[in-house]
Design a protein around this nucleic acid. Structure first.
Length: 330
DNA sequence: ACGATTTGACCGCA
DNA sequence: TGCGGTCAAATCGT
């Protein structure tokens, strides 16, 4: 498989990941009671907000991947933090998560043994990194936040200086078989033992995320109370969606920087300054169709990443909107 | 037998 | 040189 095709595959996977989160949210709002009924009993408002965040994260990662796949150079940034703040189109662009993680077929994974470790040691620093604070449900016990939908394999544990609890290291179960180099670190909070800080590195390139959640090994016992993704936050800030109707350019909008990302508001197309909502309420008379160009703000102008035919229904729920995006862009 | 976990050792970086 | 991250052999569980 070529690198490009692999990145396209990952892009689709990312979008599907978001779709699955949207479906879970759909179940929570009662639109689809058949979706994981056992899961709903443990969900709180915070968890629903988390699902919303997963949707926007997948959406943003997909955009970032699409941006990365359009470039032919393999410029590396020295640190993850630099990646998070780089201008996606200025030439100082970060590797897309897919490229950073190393696609199957890239030189990272053609090497084995100690050489792979030596190489990955440097490249690991360039992996996208974000941290979530996960609170375990007391009724499920204190065995740890093994709640996310991916299958992880523990490969180490360390006592951390100044920390009351040891830090556990996990990698994707399919690291070897599917060249998925996603890792996570889990450490229990000193202050509140019911809270685990989970630091993720790299995005999953394995097939896990393509599977419906009920088919994965999943123990939904935790509630994410806060999450941060520096890379995607910056991308969100720099994103603007330009809209046109019948070739006439309309008001653009940006993605909100602070939650609620998806709360629906009737703001009649005012999405300026990043303070609007994702759902574009074109008017009060009903559903409207228009074409959206997703681009990034740069000093040298914007380059469209997608030509997207949106169909926004002002009465629709967010998952419908995201679903529409998936169907219209792939 | 095979996969997952544990744990001491090793390595790179600040 | 100490700390964090990872390796890999030993051990455990199914």
């Amino acid at each position: 498989m070529s690198l490009l095709n692999c990145e396209q595959k990952n892009l689709i996977s990312e979008l599907i990941h978001g779709l699955n989160a949207a479906k879970q949210l759909q179940a929570q709002i009662g639109a689809d009671p058949s979706w994981r009924p056992s899961y709903s009993s443990c969900l709180t408002t915070e968890m629903k907000e988390t699902l919303l965040h997963q949707i926007v994260s997948s959406y943003e990662k997909a955009i970032l991947m699409a941006n990365g796949s359009t470039r032919t150079t393999t410029q590396h940034n020295p640190t993850t933090e630099t990646v998070a703040t780089a201008d996606p189109l200025s030439g100082k662009v970060p590797e897309s998560p897919t490229s950073i993680a190393g696609s199957p077929g890239s030189e990272d994974f053609l090497d084995g043994g100690s050489k792979d470790y030596i190489l990955s040691s440097k490249k690991r620093k360039m992996l996208p990194k974000w941290t979530e604070q996960v609170r375990i449900c007391p009724e499920r016990g204190l065995e740890g936040p093994h709640d996310d939908v991916f299958s992880w394999r523990k490969y180490g544990q360390k006592d951390i200086l100044g920390a009351k609890y040891p830090r556990s290291y996990y990698r994707c179960t399919f690291r070897n078989t599917q060249c998925c180099c996603a890792t996570k670190q889990v450490q229990r909070s000193d202050g509140d033992p019911t809270i685990f800080e989970v630091t993720y590195r790299g995005t999953h390139t394995c097939a896990q995320r393509n599977q419906p959640p009920e088919k994965r090994e999943s123990k939904p016992i935790a509630t994410v109370v806060n999450s941060q993704n520096d890379l995607l936050d910056n991308l969100r800030t720099n994103l603007t969606v330009r809209t046109t109707t019948n070739g006439i350019e309309g008001d653009g909008f940006s993605f909100p920087v602070t939650p609620p990302f998806y709360s629906y508001e009737s703001i009649n197309g005012d999405f300026g300054n990043g303070g609007g909502t994702f759902c574009h309420h074109v008017g009060s008379s009903g559903p409207s169709d228009f074409t959206g160009l997703i681009s990034t703000n740069t000093s040298t102008g914007s380059s469209p990443l997608f030509d997207v035919d949106f169909h926004f229904d002002p009465t629709a729920e967010i998952d419908t909107t995201f679903h529409t995006f998936l169907h219209d862009t792939i």
